[in-house]
Amino acid sequence: MKKANTKHRPEKQASLIVDKENELLKFLIAQLPQQGRNSIKSLLAHRQISVDGEVTTLFNYPLVAGQKVNINRSKVYQERRELKPLGLKIFFEDEYLIIIEKPAGMLSIATDREKELTAYNVLSTHIKKRDNQSRVFVVHRLDRETSGVMMFAKSEEIKEKLQNAWKEVVLERSYAVVVHGPLTDDQGTITSWLTENKALRMYSSKTPNGGQKAVTHYKVLEKNNSYSLLEVKLETGRKNQIRIHMQDIGHSVIGDIKYGGIKSSINRLGLHAHILAFKHPVTNEIMHFESPIPKEFLSFFHKKQNK
């Protein structure tokens, strides 16, 4: 009989003994160096930390020497197993926010025309398993074929707080983008005004014409004779902004048939939400989340040489 592989399976429960006075969050960060600060805060928010048998969610809970801090991970592992078949990764979750990695091909939220599986209803199901009254709210969207970091709120109040102060709250939105052709300029800024027609297609204009101002900054990371890999940062967040601005400079996103591109060998849009950094709307902590550049993007530039 084949034995189960448990080589890298963490203990579902762990106990730590306090050696001196400290605050709980600082103690956990020092004791669990392999875990990130946000991951530890998520354990607290999910009521998975107890001190001498008493569950607490307080970051600054005062500890004294001799106390026992218990960590119960079983709940997290169960939730990850349930979400794994849907291909949705949760980077961070507390009582106010959920930060995810959305895969390419999944809608952010259903539309009047499309009612299929979405990131929104996957997360709704996820949180309702703990509390049937819980809800999630879309703070911003990613196109169906765009992958990467995305934020949801757990209350309408938090959603509105984020959206109303979006420019002040969001510190960085960075995308990895593969476009057709080598760019001449290694960096630049694109500014135009975007409007949407009745067919839901966005158009770009060099003059206002009643449209919304859109500003996109780009930097070339790598390029060859056929493609360029760009780091793109948004100063504004308009619908289809990156796709339209890439078309404006004559280098459409690969796979973007709607805005001047052609079908790509990786069968997806060459657009990935790489980094999202923002100020937490309640704790004011600076949060930074990064989803690696997809390997299929890099394959255009790092093809293995035939021996």
Score class of each variant (00 low, 15 high):
Gln13Phe: 09
Glu79Thr: 08
Lys26Val: 06
Arg47Val: 06
Phe91Asn: 01
Asn22Val: 13
Leu28His: 01
Glu82Lys: 09
Lys12Glu: 14
Lys89Trp: 07
Lys41Trp: 04
Gly105Asp: 05
Ser74Gln: 12
Ser15Phe: 05
Gly36Val: 01
Arg80Thr: 04
Leu97Met: 05
Ile71Arg: 01
Gln31Tyr: 02
Lys102Thr: 07
Tyr77Lys: 10
Leu88Gly: 03
Ile29Met: 13
Ala30Gln: 14
Ile100Tyr: 00
Pro85Leu: 07
Ile98Leu: 12
Ala30Val: 11
Lys89Asp: 10
Ala65Glu: 07
Ala45Phe: 05
Val76Ile: 13
Leu44Arg: 02
Asn38Met: 13
Leu63Ile: 01
Leu88His: 04
Gln67His: 04
Gly36Gln: 14
Gly36Cys: 07
Phe27Arg: 00
Asn38Ser: 15
Phe27Lys: 02
Ala14Asp: 13
Ile17His: 08
Leu44Trp: 03
Glu11Gly: 13
Gln34Trp: 07
Val76Ala: 09
Pro10Trp: 03
Leu107Ser: 00
Leu16Ile: 02
Ser50Lys: 06
Glu101Gln: 13
Gln13Leu: 08
Gly87Asp: 03
Ala14Val: 15
Ser39Val: 09
Ala14Lys: 15
Gln13Arg: 15
Ser15Gln: 15
Ile98Trp: 08
Gln31Met: 15
Ile17Asn: 14
Ile17Glu: 15
Ala104Thr: 04
Asn22Phe: 06
Leu44Ala: 03
Ile71Val: 15
Glu101His: 13
Tyr61Ala: 04
Arg80Trp: 07
Ala45Asp: 01
Glu93His: 09
Leu58Trp: 08
Thr57Asn: 10
Ser50Thr: 10
Tyr61Trp: 11
Glu79Val: 02
Ile29Thr: 13
Lys12Tyr: 12
Gln31Phe: 09
His46Ser: 12
Leu43Pro: 00
Ile98Ser: 08
Lys20Asp: 12
Asp94Cys: 09
Arg37Trp: 14
Phe59Lys: 03
Gln13Met: 14
Asp94Lys: 11
Asn38Trp: 12
Pro62Val: 06
Asp52Ile: 03
Thr56Pro: 03
Leu24Lys: 01
Lys75Trp: 01
Val18Arg: 00
Pro33Cys: 12
Val18Trp: 02
Glu95Leu: 07
Gln35Ile: 04
Asp94Phe: 10
Ile71Gly: 00
Tyr61Met: 03
Ile49Arg: 01
Thr57Tyr: 04
Val69Asp: 00
Pro33Asp: 09
Pro33His: 11
Ile71Glu: 00
Gly53Ile: 02
Tyr96Cys: 06
Ile17Asp: 11
Val55Pro: 06
Ile98Gly: 05
Ile99Asp: 07
Glu95Ser: 11
Arg73Lys: 15
Leu25Ser: 04
Pro10Arg: 08
Lys89Tyr: 10
Thr57Lys: 15
Phe59His: 09
Ala104Ile: 01
Glu95Tyr: 06
Pro85Thr: 07
Val64Thr: 13
Ser74Val: 06
Ile98Ala: 09
